[in-house]
């Protein structure tokens, strides 16, 4: 006997006159291997075609479908209903502007984050089309890739109490991103330059170490250790900035 699932879904379309925020229930019979990608599409196709949510790759690669599932920010495409109780509560990811229902505007948020971080390789060297690539140790490449795996889904922001309180706080995704550039030998920025970007209350020193980010990251990024690493590095830099005799 298949379970009868009840989906309690946040509904609000800011573009529709007369729409007001609230929860609406949908019922669906559970089938084998049902995940939230299939379930939400079924609900949309058979029960309410105006239901808004975001899926893209539906393979846990693109990060489009983060939402709060029974109280936890997760990727919906990777969530099987079998892992959940019969009552499934779906809320849009907090900390981002609501587009409608379960859909939030992560694109604008992350674009602005990347602009603030200046998250690109800073170098004065020009690309030489005729030269072979610059040599890099494979282990360094793998360490960079480890951090480069962030998919900007926004789960870490949704799970961060600090980010909920302070909209200018850049969050774990940003600290992980800057750690990736600190690691990259191609990026010639100094610690002083990095400090100007993240050595602030909007950056690493705004973090209270609650670790919601670390515990919900669907890519299992080493956020706890990276946040601590950036904090130590920037703390040292702060001392260097004011104590002229303190080097390294």
């Amino acid at each position: 006997m298949n379970r009868k699932l009840t989906f309690s879904i946040f509904r609000y379309n800011p573009q529709e006159t007369g729409s007001s925020p609230g929860m609406r229930e949908f019922r669906l019979e559970e089938t084998e291997n049902l995940n939230l990608f299939v379930a939400l599409n079924l609900i949309r196709e058979t029960q309410d075609p105006s239901l808004q949510f975001d899926f893209c790759c539906r393979a846990g690669i693109c990060g489009a479908c983060a939402m709060v599932i029974n109280g936890r920010p997760r990727l919906a495409c990777r969530t099987k209903t079998a892992e959940l109780p019969e009552k499934i509560v779906l809320m849009p990811l907090p900390g981002f502007r609501l587009v409608g229902d379960l859909s939030v505007d992560t694109g604008a948020w992350f674009r602005s984050m990347n602009e603030r971080l200046r998250s690109w390789i800073h170098t004065d060297e020009n690309f030489d089309p005729d030269a072979p690539e610059v040599v890099m140790d494979n282990q360094v490449a793998e360490e960079i890739y480890e951090l480069d795996r962030c998919i900007e889904c926004g789960c870490c922001i949704g799970a961060c109490a600090t980010a909920q309180m302070r909209s200018d706080f850049m969050g774990a995704a940003a600290m992980n991103r800057i750690a990736r550039f600190m690691l990259d030998p191609r990026d010639k920025r100094t610690n002083r330059e990095f400090f100007e970007i993240v050595g602030t209350d909007q950056g690493i020193f705004g973090c209270m170490g609650l670790l919601g980010c670390h515990d919900v990251c669907p890519k299992n990024l080493p956020l706890q250790d990276q946040l601590a690493h950036v904090r130590r590095k920037m703390g040292r830099q702060a001392l260097k900035n004011i104590l002229p005799w303190y080097k390294n």
Binding site: P129, V134, M136, R186
Partner: peptide, 18 residues
Amino acid sequence: PLAIRQMDHWGVPWNRVV
């Protein structure tokens, strides 16, 4: 080959020869 080296210059962490 040129295009991939440019991507490398821009920051792609390609796996390397060990």
